[in-house]
Every structure is written in C-alpha cells, then in structure tokens.
Computed example of a mutant assay.
Amino acid sequence: MIQYINEKVFTIDTGPNMFMGFDEGNSVILFDTGIDESVGRKIDKILGKPVSLIVNSHSHADHIGGNSYFQKRYNSKVFAEPGELSFLNNTELEPSLLNGGYWEFLLSDKFLKAKNSMVEPIDREILSQKGIEILDLSGHSPSLIGLKIDKIVYLGDALFSGDIIEKYRVLYLYDVGRFEKSLSTIEELNFEKAVICHKGLYDKEVIHDLIDINRKHTATIKSLILENSQGTTDYEITEAILNKLSIEPNLTIYMLILSTIRGYLSYLQKTGEVEMVFDKGVRWKRK
C-alpha cells in the first residue's frame, strides 16, 4: 500500500515494514527495499515507475534485500554510509559479525543475509540538491542514517514502536550509547511527521512518547544485566535474561540477543558499572 504524505513524499507498507520514498515524476527514490527480491517486486508493482536511486538506512537484511531486484530491473544506483558499505557489498559479514566468525548456518537465514548489491558511498551533495538531508542516527547498527525532507523524517530503525518492544522484549542494538544519543537527536529535530520501519507514520507528539518507551526499554535491559553480573559469563547473563523475560528463541533470535547483551556489557564497562575479569574465561562483575 502506498500513501502520499505530501505531493512528493510517500510511504510504502509492505506488511512487516514501512519504508519511505521520494517521487521525482518519471522515477522515484526509495529509502530501503525490504527483506528480499519478492518484496522488491511487490514494491515495484505498487510504484508503477522506475526506481532511479535507493538510499539504504543501514545494512540489515530486512532493509536491503530488495536492492538486487531493482538493480537488475532498473540498474538503480544504491547509496549507503561508508560504515555500512562492506556489509552491503559482502552480506556474509553481517551474520559473521553476530557470531564473531564465519558460520555457514547463519548464512542460510534470509533475516540475516540478503543478496549482495553494488553500493556506493552516499553522495550528500546529490541528495542535498533534491532537498534530502542526512541524519546520523547510529546505534542499532554502526552507521545507521535517517533522512529529512522538509518537515518529514525517515527514522528507519533508530526508533521502535511499543508493539515491537513488547513482541521481541530485547531490541537488537550494536552500540547502546550511540542508540541513546540518537534518541536525543530525534528529540531535538524540527519535524511534523516521522516514519519508523517497525512500524508506522506518526506525529511528533507520538514520536516523543516512543522515545520515552525506548529509553525505558534500554534502562530495563541495563538493570537486568547488572542484576545478573555476578562473576558470570555473557552466555549465563543472556540465559538469565531469556528466562526472566520468558523468551524462547530460535537460533537466529538467540544470536541477536547474545550480541546485544555483549554490546550492553561493553557500554556498562565504559560507564564504570561493570568490570570484566578473566577467570577460566571472560566474566562480568557489577561494581
């Protein structure tokens, strides 16, 4: 489903995700493309016109999986921030990052590994000429960006709905400190409407409510980690949190949560709230 916010800016609801686009008349610019080529094909059918340019907010599979479809069909140019490029051009790196090394099983999961696409460093001058401003909203991924057109912002995965937090209970974060900084950045933006991928088109007042919900979520996870940092390993802390929150994960979800817990531990070590000790392996203690 397509919905125009103004004469040029529109949203596309693919079911699990909501993306944004910019109508240039004879062609469109897309901000993210979905999890695979079937979603790309669905978006293409809805649009009914060529996609000249794709701007990926970050390198996660559910945002880049349709790139290859549009590049084959329209030879679409794809932009992304330099910090995400390696993961986009060589998508086996994303699951390898989660695991800490190559693991064939994770490479077969489309939620972690999309098809490779040919991506270039983002050209801010080209986008600026079209009235598109780039926002640094990293944290969920190393170099996640948002986009601002007039009083409309595309936040990608820099912010999550309450329904998503309730469903998954532990949001995947790469860098907790940068995620929290991005929440403050969003809070200070001058906008009227915002699109988040998971998911919806919201007024500014609702976005500010969601910022509070996301902050409370990170505070809850920090508290659970501190409670369970008693000379324990990251695996033991993760298991305790899974039990506390009644999460029964498959392997993919488990790896996402384990990676997130490690990110929190790094953050809490930096803030001086936990210390890492080596005692028959790496262990974490609350200070």
Rank of each mutant, 00 (worst) to 15 (best):
D150G: 09
L155S: 11
I46W: 07
I46K: 04
I207T: 05
K199E: 06
K204I: 11
V9W: 01
L251T: 11
G139P: 03
Y172P: 08
D44M: 00
Y254L: 08
F22C: 11
I54N: 03
H208D: 13
E37C: 05
K151W: 03
T271C: 13
S76P: 11
D175Q: 00
Y174L: 10
I12C: 08
I149M: 11
I257S: 03
H217D: 03
Q3M: 04
I54W: 01
K151Y: 09
T260A: 11
G281W: 09
A114H: 15
N26R: 12
E248M: 15
Y202L: 08
W284D: 00
I134P: 05
E180L: 15
D44C: 04
S86R: 15
Y174Q: 12
L155W: 07
I43M: 07
E273N: 08
S128D: 14
K222L: 02
N214R: 03
T218I: 11
R283V: 07
E236W: 12
L189T: 14
K167Q: 14
L171I: 12
S161P: 02
L47T: 04
D279W: 03
T252F: 00
D175T: 04
E188H: 08
G101C: 14
Q230V: 07
N26L: 10
I5G: 01
I225F: 05
Y154S: 15
N190G: 14
V277H: 13
G34I: 00
N17R: 02
K45I: 12
D23W: 07
Y264P: 00
T271D: 09
P50W: 13
L155M: 13
K110N: 03
E205S: 13
S161D: 00
D62S: 15
L88T: 03
T238W: 09
I43E: 08
S141R: 09
T232V: 02
N214Q: 05
G65Y: 04
L97T: 14
S141P: 09
L183Q: 02
G101Y: 15
T218K: 07
G156A: 11
S68A: 04
Y235D: 04
A194L: 12
S184P: 06
T185M: 08
G146H: 07
N89L: 02
G25F: 07
I64M: 12
Y102E: 15
L173R: 01
A158N: 06
I186S: 08
K204Q: 14
